[in-house]
Amino acid sequence: MEIDAQLIAYLEELSCLILSEREKQRLTDDLREILNSMARLEELNTTGVPERSHPFDNVNAFREDVVQPSLSREHILQNAPAHNSEFFIAPKTVE
């Protein structure tokens, strides 16, 4: 994958970030280096190694369907950058 200005602009949009020209350059370098490192994995011979989606072999870590107390509203709201007595508040989100 080629890390170019177009891809950086796309990632900027997807991640809702606004980057300065300097940051864009740094990110381009970083991402290229990350991709190069990851490309080394392709040198590994994985013939006969089964595909997996999780590093652990365990499965089925369940909880039973039992209601536990929630946090009080006052507590859950207190870390939010903006809230009133009932709701979290975000800038107007249009859809």
């Binding site: 859950i76 903006a82 009133n84 009932e86 709701f87 979290f88 508040i89 975000a90 800038p91 107007k92 989100t93």
Partner: peptide, 11 residues
């Protein structure tokens, strides 16, 4: 919220 022109969130 029309008054503040913000979005209120109920999680």
């Amino acid at each position: 919220d029309a008054v503040s022109d913000n979005t209120l969130m109920d999680f």
